[in-house]
Design a protein around this nucleic acid. Sequence first.
DNA 1: TGTGTCGCCCTTTTT
DNA 2: GGGCGACACA
Length: 1143
Amino acid sequence: MSPSPSEDDSDEEPSPRIPQQRIIESSEYPMRVLAGAGTGKTFTMVRKVEHLIDEHDVSPDRILALTFTNKAAASMREKLNEKLGAPGYDVNAYTYHSICHDILREYAYHAEIDPQFDVVNNADRTALIHEALDEITYRFTSPEVYGPDSHADGAAGSLLKFISTMKSKGISPSTIETFLGDADRLLELEALVDRIVDRANETVRVSWRAPSADRLEEMRDGLADLQQSIEDERTALGQTGVEQSVATFLCGMEETCTSLAELLETEEASIIDDEHKPAFRLPAYLFGTYASPPSGIPDSMSVTLTGKLRSFVEECQEAADLVAGYTAYEQRLHEASLVDFADLIGATLDLLEDPNIRAEIAGQYDYVFCDEFQDTDAVQFELVDQLADDDKLFVVGDDDQAIYEWRGAAVENIGHRLEERYETLIPETLEENFRSKQPILDVANNVIAQLEARGSEKELTAVGDAANASDGIATITAAEDDEEQAEQIATAIGRLLAGSLSDVDETYGAGDIALLVRKNRHAKPIVRALEERGIPYQLAGGLAADSVGVETVLAYLKALANPADEVSLNRVLTMRYRLHDVDLRLLNTASDSLSEALQSLPLDQFREPERVRRAREDFQALRAKREIYSVARLFRELKEQTNIDWYLSPQERRDLRTLESLIDSFGEGALQPALDESFLELLSLMESLDDSVAGVQDQAETVSDAVNIMTVHKSKGLEFPVVFLPNLSADQWEPSTRSYDTLGHTLEETAATPLDQDFEKRDEYEARRIFHVAMTRAEEQLVLVGRHADDGGVDDGDLSLSFIDSWLPEQIPWRATGASFPIWQEVTAGLPPTATDWTDEVAPIDGGVDPTISVNGESVPQSVARDRVLALARGLLNGDLDSVSPATAGFAVEALSTDGGPALSHRHSYTSLEKYSQCSRRHYLDYLVRAFEDPQRGDTGSNTVSIRDTGILFHDTAELAAKRSLTSPEKWNDVCDELGRQGSYSAGIVDQAKGCIDRYFSTEASSWEILSAERSFTLDIDGHTITGKIDAVYRNSAGNLVVLDYKATTMQRSLDDNLQLPIYLLACQQLFDERIDEAGYVYVGSVGPDMSTRTFSDDELAQCRQDLLTRLQAAEDSTFDDYTAGDHCQWCPHRSLSCSQTH
DNA sequence: TGTGTCGCCCTTTTT
DNA sequence: GGGCGACACA
């Protein structure tokens, strides 16, 4: 056990390490701690608060601790309480938003807002945005969008994004309006860009292909002309903000003209003699005269000066349109006494401008602690600054884990902004990582080492055993195709779970493994591959959003509640009943309503009447039950009646389980509502929460019994023994620019100009930090899956990007190299020598490629090795191992001889004897040799498996419930849920088991007393031993003992013609003192509910004992050679043997 | 060699 | 709707 002070809440708290201790005990403020991933930053912060209270007698209520999420605030309170007892709760642990909420409530009057204000919820905000949209007149941009169901909900989405970007930077509508000035000027600015391009066409665009000294001379003159024209444009510009910004742009262009002229002069020789020949096209390209990079200019260079300027102008134009919507939105919020999340902070800041109020509020706290400071935005920074009146400020965070810039967070807050605001700031760092092995940290350090403007040059180092570990990194070179990559990953995960990867000693459970994706869509093919292999997985909320199955079930419920809801009904008819198009049209065009048509149209009018009939009957039956059943019951009934599980994937069944738990929570007990209007309201409420059903459940983010799949962003703060990172290729990780950033940034700081930031570079940095966060989630094994981008787009004759860069003047902040993150190239270049390559091991065997594996030092193609193993297995089965030569087997075949070893031992049970009576070969294989089942995927068997699992789950439930003396169906259901979760049964199995419970409770047996459950016995019959388990022994209402066996199958069993019940009774005679002669079956499967028992006379039992003896003796003599072929062969797990071939 | 056109796909998310 | 890559043309 490593002394990990991080997340774990193990009983004994570890003691802080030296650097942590120094921070905890320090009395110096303001202090900033840059704490790397897994270095225990929250631990240190909590301990520091404790230290203040314990050692310095600071009153807990004088301490303010700010975090980002409610969850984090709650956990901090909890931890403090654990350590300090009740005073721990007196520490003011807030989120950045919740403290503002409280302040505004108290000072609403001063803040001039309605004291009854509410925080706007998603639904209301969407409504307000839509109203605000009406106020926008589109002069420059068009509101058209590509589809209402896509992520950014079109016009509303872009307005919302605009507003929240501006608000997070504290920029008001009027600031924007002032900056933009008259709309006509914006049109004029667009024309200005066109004029520059036109001018460039006249001055620097050339038609000749080969440069000469004269031509270059001519072009230098052209550049001078162009520069003059730009200068003229610049001096004609007005004084508004935009125009000044454009003026700065133009300055940069003029500089570029000078610089390019210089290039043509100094490099004249190399341009003429071919080395830098394409440089003569550079001016024309940079000033926008080419639609795409001409030959010689690398395709990857997408930066042109005019392009940059144009997009800035367009951004301003769009802003000019949207600002009206911003104003209207603010207006409506105010009228409705609503504030949004950004207002909470903004209004509080306004309030704090009053020195008296500020003194009052900030005076309540002596110390201010801030967590995750790298995620704060501009207004949150100001808030903290205002509250930390005495500069007793303690800030923790990690600039290397800043991955929320795109939503307004500013990394500079924890960097130079803090340093500038607090000149006496004490910088501290934590670099000891308690989570990962050193090689993992090395790679993680690598990607961020080259970031510029980091707060400090942190380098994570492992402690304890992890520091000396040399393993921990594996790579897989991903196939081009996403599906194939998914196969590779699924294979790797499967092998990991089976413990069969050659260089991994550890065995892992599914819950130990996380798959972290950059984008949601990366998960899709991988999910499919896992599903195919039956590897359990869990998608973190959001990823499961589009579960077709859940939607279909929801539609079914809606249609039942309200048959007039034809949209839902149509959906059900299509998705579940798969009605033919023609039949659907017939139903929809009937004179009656859709639901009436479904019930009344003569079946012979349909093309596929059978499907229509099924839909009709199901719907009718369920409609009738709707009146009498509770929603929860009806839901279960629905699933059973329509057999809808059959149409769902295992994952969709899992999704359905969350829906079920939601329905259960809707109303349990006597007052359970029926499916009615109020339920529909709930449904629409759920759907309006745009993150779908999956988002509603606030379960733990991770599960322990399935592979956790989530985006990197969601994984922040979590840790897993094994982490897979797929899609590591430049084209999947490449940064892309964010909108409104140039404008937002320009408006945010008065001194800033659109020219002083290279946003693409910033995006690249963020991509690196996201990768860093992803890798530092791994404790023991990090699996990197990626490949090189198809092609850099760099031709041999191209100018190099760095050559171009060297001729771009300083005033131009962006570089031709742009934002490129050749992620796989960097990964492969920076691998530790001990990193292993799993690519061959996870290659598909049938895929044409035949990787080699090492057998006794010899390299053998995998297919050959596989054949050898199979030959060996066949030899073993047939008893002719001699036919396998020791040389090819790799070891002496004699080693397998059983001579002198223990004889195959016979252990009998009721089932084994039954198998024997069916086929003695099968008995031999299953119970003596214990052969494994044929590996071929038996599609035929899938149904029986699920019934078998259902039976097992029901039996387990019954056993546990009996042992806990539980007697109500609700309690049994609880037990069933509990076991279902532990055993990673699919949702469908749990449902079916619950159906069994329902049926059990409608039998008489459920009212009897259970004396013993799952009682194991050993019965001796003349030297032969039979073992087994008795499901249950009851005392019936007459006071007699009865042996009962639960049957979850689809068939009844005869009471007379079998040995099972007599065996149990014989066993019970030894186990119980009382006489027991009655036994029978309780049918809880689909043939039930039913129960039948009978009594056995002593004579009958004695006869059975004789029969048993005969069979036992026969079974002991059974060999592989005897077999009975028959119908049973088609279900036999050994059906690839020749004995079954005749059938 | 440069441009036109068609088809394809469409981040990251908390308060 | 729009950006981008793949191909076809002048």
